[in-house]
Design a protein around this nucleic acid. Structure first.
Lengths: 330, 330
DNA sequence: CTGAAAGCGCTTACAG
DNA sequence: CTGAAAGCGCTTACAG
């Protein structure tokens, strides 16, 4: 939006618009008002030179970055952006409700090549506004069901849930607890469904009291783990929703004087670098977080102005067996 | 001061000066340097349509982001930037040599309010180039001795090393191993000096074989820890250079069948969120990473165009005693 | 790697 | 009050 365009729309000359912008006195009040309204309407901002190639920026939007999980996402996005000659801008919203108007206005004030939204809700309004500004976007691990025409990247969570649960069943476990993430996280629901499928296939009844929810952090693993272990008929194995949650379950087991894996088997999800260094080292479902973020970033920078192809990609998860799982005692 | 005047003084054309300012690659190195010196000398600032406003971007430059340590820095910087109405751009250089020409050209191609350089070397050349472009910058935890006129933020590493070592001495330990970071990290040298000071004050001889170096990651803690525990007269306590290194030492102790803290005391450094969840929970020296990054970010955005006041700030460290330290057996 | 020429968005001086 | 014309600082496309 240039003053030339504003001038045309207002039916005045370029110098007149310039005078309004600069508060010169010699402009007729009606003219001034008409021009001001148009300036405001179009959100006019002075533009220097005429660079306007790609901005070299990809916006990476988190709801929270408390977990080392987020660091893996940042690493993947940064690598892919750098390879494309771009840099990553981090925003943390501190809400799962998705980016709001504040954020959108800030983003609009500078240029960006595109937006990667991580583990957050994408409202229809935001989708429309991003599209209106020709900002391509991709959602990583969407919260809730993403609209069908939105590009997204995730992992094969259902398969991961299935593989983890089967591993425990094969070891001989029958009472298997599960701690999921927030109820509206799609990835978490898929894992729980994989857990159910494995149990049902094996002819093991699904016990509602063994299915718990928390956020993905250590504390919720400890709290839910404690409750599971305090049950009259406690589980002999727990499948946690994240590696951090699994660390919390390890803590709960220690507090009860249980040894892992002799008295309790624990499986995590993510395979963060720290999963190897924990004690006992963690059996977990690896999801390729760096690759997921890198792919989303590449989709966004490759798409140029205009929406990227709306497709859903799921990268493979893989069970990594370490020391935290073993057959149950009897 | 216009680019036309600079061009005349440098004996080049106006477009050439424009290319230098915008980080275009097609300028001969000698030409670039001559022009940069003049830009800096005259304190050049782009004058078109005077305002242009702040870019709303702070560049946060890491050499590596493998550790959750980096996440704490990101969180602090992001919070401070958001409070100032700005966003954080992440760059990872994958070298400790500090930002090079590549990076500088990319940065110059867009606007930035300033640069926070984390745990990297700041070359005189880079310092000159940032100044030439009126980009304020602050170094967090500088590698090597930073030039005296450079603003930097760190922690009271010497005091931290002193406090950790005193804690172990007070518990009765006399053979205390230490694993530092890379030899040219200033923060690491300060901690080792604090360790020496505590030993000397207590009249305990400093044993060279007990002083080790690694990077700050888990593997180096495990490797150096293993070597320390394999000594003919092994230490009864180890002060690690980071919490991750301490996790590695815990692993080395387990591999040797030693219990912590009964057979070996371990102290970390940083107090990452995970230090509480480890087992045993880690006695460590807390450094306020988020506050350090937030302060550096605020210094950079507050300084406006032109260099920030060149000052060195050290935030306080604090010993946090948990379960990984105890009196030695005898 | 360099710069003459054309062009950008915007401002100013001035004629009407 | 208004706008055609000249001008400003700067950038870009391109020929050499």
């Amino acid at each position: 939006m240039t003053i030339a365009l504003i001038a045309e729309e207002a039916g005045v000359s370029v110098p007149t618009v310039s005078k309004v912008i600069n508060g010169r006195p010699e402009v007729a009040p009606e003219t001034r008002q008409r021009v001001e309204r148009l300036l405001h309407l179009h959100g006019y901002q002075r533009r220097v030179g005429q660079a306007d190639g790609p901005a070299g920026l990809v916006d990476l939007v988190f709801s929270e970055i408390e977990s080392p999980w987020a660091m893996e996402i940042v690493r993947g996005a940064e690598t892919a952006a750098r390879e494309a000659g771009a840099s990553v801008v981090i925003s943390v919203l501190h809400t799962h409700a998705g980016p709001g108007r504040d954020w959108l206005e800030r983003i609009a004030a500078r240029r960006t090549d595109g937006v990667v939204i991580v583990a957050s809700r994408l409202s229809a309004g935001l989708q429309r506004q991003l599209s209106a500004r020709s900002m391509p976007f991709v959602v990583v691990d969407p919260e809730g069901e993403p609209p069908p025409n939105v590009a997204s990247v995730g992992a094969t969570n259902w398969n991961g849930g299935l593989a983890a649960t089967r591993h425990l069943l094969e070891l001989g476990h029958r009472r298997i607890g599960i701690i999921g993430g927030p109820a509206d996280m799609l990835c978490s629901r898929a894992r729980i469904d994989g857990y159910r499928a494995a149990l049902e296939t094996a002819g093991v009844a699904v016990a509602p009291e063994l299915i718990r929810r928390g956020d993905f952090l250590v504390d919720s693993g400890r709290d839910q783990g404690r409750e599971l272990l305090a049950l009259a008929d406690p589980p002999t194995a727990v499948f946690a929703g994240s590696d951090l949650q699994a660390f919390g379950v390890l803590e709960a087991a220690r507090q009860r004087g249980l040894r892992v894996p002799e008295d309790l088997s624990v499986v995590g999800f993510d395979d963060l670098p720290l999963a190897q260094s924990a004690w006992p080292s963690l059996t977990t479902v690896r999801q390729p977080l760096q690759e997921m973020a890198a792919l989303a970033t590449r989709m966004v920078v490759a798409s140029g102005p205009g929406a990227p192809e709306a497709k859903r990609v799921e990268l493979a998860t893989e069970l990594v067996v370490r020391e935290s799982t073993a057959p149950p005692r009897h």
